[in-house]
Design a binder for these strands. Structure first.
Length: 569
RNA sequence: GCCCCCGUAGCUCAUCCGGACAGAGCAUCUGCCUUCUAAGCAGAGGGUAGCAGGUUCGAGUCCUGCCGGGGGUACCA
């Protein structure tokens, strides 16, 4: 990665300040106001060491570097209040930066920190037999985004869908199916038939509590391998998976493995045995637990008093299986923050087992998606299906396309990409720890800070290259890129590697969203004010190189988010 | 009760691990399409950053308390 601007400032100040170049770099910041320059170095923290007022220090330092300027890519500097502000030379900036982006292409900004090691991501994980709703969206799109990001950082990612495909809810469904189900129900959209059965069950069970017992009984039969129950379960499983796979393909979800809870049924005994051998378990109130009181994590339940296992037991079996199978360098669980304690317990147990790799496991938590003031609940039927959201977004996008660009060749396809782009972006752009209020207005908005705006920006750039017709080359006169809008674009491009790094460190897709939005704003401001393709071939060539570099970054960024970089729209 | 998260413009969100007058979008209002895509651009209005203290040269950002919302807290996931 290239940090040449920051390096130059470090070298420039190195002799004049009694702190290390590393500390200089760490303190550099971006001024909020453009007039203050491109980079700023605050001197306040030196006041105590140098026993001087910050403005004096700034003056003092400035006077010592003044005759060295210009220095590297630093064109000028000035002391302003307690700051020293630096301006970067657009010519040197373009020369170094654009050449680098041009030659590195889609690799620009990425390091190879993963070095081919495995990284497993637990994502999506819906409960089988329930239609995919917007509440499932975040885990799916955040997980997929991190998957692509870490792939580009050299990891070999494995996306694991830990399906909720086991448990008493299947007993309920089987009871409901036997009592109220007909084959006709399943002829089309079987997943909604399953939902109806589920809702019906809860309605009937309110009047007749004995249904709950029947459900437990049916689930018990399923666990014991009863052929009829197994047959029904399998059908439901297939129906659900078919629907999920359809949705995953639309969302660009990255799933390699469908190993749900049922997959770990026969692997829990080994895990439990391991814990018992290490003396971690105890019996408390007739249940099998790991006592984590001394770590402030309460009691972790592994077996209920009736011997039944719990999801912690399955997750424990799963994490051991995954470590054993993949020997992962990192394991990410993209799961809502409601399960924070659960994962703290899980990771603590791994630590108590003596495994160092407990530090490689991370719970990537995120807030709820709410609808109106209510939590979404399948039972209550207070729910927005992802299918409906995607369909409405797609229809709206199609209307707009036909109005704005009626000649486009495949309007259906473009509409889907734009509609889905809006939906995905709306979810990724909010930092993970916030709850999201689902609103149709926001999900279907294509203006301003939205997915389609970014896609539109890319389409403009693609259009320029089509119009240009010639090969974009890096053999240009860099001195021609001297407009403030051009410099701003380059300064933003320069920061792409840092943003990727931050996004990866924080496991935070919103960092990339915010960055691409800013880059798009820069591009559109430039585009409005200046023409790219003109009679002036030298200037045209220079600007086309800049456009290519912006497009390279936009394209890679969009792909990481899971949005289609549109060629036309 | 205890633990965790959130509280910034009418609404939805940023604020670069403490820095210069807190920035965008949506909505409202005003301009800009015979020239590379107007899903765009330029501009206007709109703020006591929940409240009160504290640390600091400096706090939306860190600490304490309170208020409001959400989640978790042993046999759901």
């Amino acid at each position: 990665m290239n940090d040449f601007i920051v390096d130059d400032i470090g070298a420039l100040l190195g002799d004049t300040v009694s702190i290390s170049e590393d500390d200089i770099r760490k303190n550099l910041e971006l001024p909020k106001v453009r007039e203050h320059g491109d980079f700023a170095f605050p001197t306040f923290f030196l006041a105590r060491i140098m026993r001087m007022a910050p403005p004096k220090i700034a003056q003092e330092i400035y006077s010592r570097i003044a005759d060295k300027l210009p220095f590297g890519c630093i064109e000028s500097a000035e002391a302003a209040g307690g700051y020293i502000n630096f301006k970067v030379s657009p010519q040197i900036l373009s020369q170094k930066l654009l050449a680098e982006i041009y030659s590195e292409g889609e690799g620009y900004g990425f390091t190879n920190e993963g070095d081919g090691r495995n990284l497993t991501i637990d994502l999506s994980s819906p409960n089988i037999a329930k239609p995919f709703h917007v509440g499932h969206l975040r885990s799916t799109v955040v997980g997929s985004c991190l998957y692509r990001l870490f792939e580009k950082l050299g990891y070999n990612c494995i996306g694991i869908n830990h399906l909720g495909d086991w448990g008493t809810q299947f007993g309920k469904l089987i009871v409901a199916y036997k009592k109220f189900g007909t084959e006709k129900l399943f002829e089309k959209e079987p997943i909604y038939a399953l939902l109806d059965l589920y809702i019906r069950f809860h309605k009937e069970a309110a009047a007749d509590p004995s249904l709950e017992d029947q459900a437990r009984e049916e689930f018990k039969k399923l666990e014991q391998g009863d052929p009829e129950a197994t047959e029904i379960w399998k059908r439901f499983y297939e129906y659900s998976l078919e629907e999920y796979k359809r949705i995953y393909s639309i969302l660009n979800a990255t799933i390699d493995e469908y190993t749900g809870e049922s997959f770990y049924n026969d692997k829990m005994d080994d895990a439990l045995e391991l814990l018992e051998r290490k003396g971690l378990t105890e019996i408390s109130r007739d249940a099998l637990i790991v006592n984590l009181e001394e770590y402030g994590l309460g009691a972790a339940l592994l077996k209920k008093s009736d011997e039944a296992t719990l999801y912690l037991t399955r997750d424990l079996a799963a994490i051991l299986y995954r470590k054993n199978t993949y020997d992962f360098a990192k394991m990410l669980y993209v799961v809502g923050s409601a399960q924070a304690l659960h994962f703290k317990q899980l990771f603590k147990i791994i630590e108590l087992l003596g495994y160092e790799w407990h530090t490689d496991c991370h719970h990537i938590e995120f807030g709820w998606i709410k609808f109106g003031k209510e939590m979404m609940s399948t039972r209550e039927g207070n729910i927005v299906f992802l299918n409906d959201v995607i369909n409405r977004a797609r229809e709206l996008a199609k209307e707009i396309i036909l109005e704005k660009n009626p000649d486009i060749e495949d309007a259906e396809r473009a509409a889907l990409h734009i509609g889905v782009g809006a939906v995905i972006y709306a979810d990724l752009a909010v930092r993970r720890n916030h709850d999201i209020n689902f609103s149709w207005e926001d999900a279907l908005n294509f203006d301003g800070n939205t997915g389609p705006y970014l896609q539109y920006t890319h389409a403009r750039l693609a259009s320029l290259e089509r119009k240009f017709e010639k090969e974009v080359t890096a053999d240009i006169d860099f001195a021609l890129l001297k407009e403030p809008e051009e410099k701003q674009l380059m300064l933003t491009l320069y920061r792409f590697p840092q943003k990727l790094k931050q996004a990866a460190e924080d496991y935070e897709p919103a960092v990339i969203c915010g960055y691409l939005y800013e880059l798009s704003q820069n591009l559109n401001s430039f585009y409005q004010k200046h023409r790219v393709i003109t009679e002036d071939t030298a200037l045209t060539n220079a600007r086309m190189l800049l456009m290519r570099c912006v497009r390279t970054v936009m394209k890679e960024g969009l792909k990481i988010l899971g949005l289609e970089p549109m060629e036309r729209m």
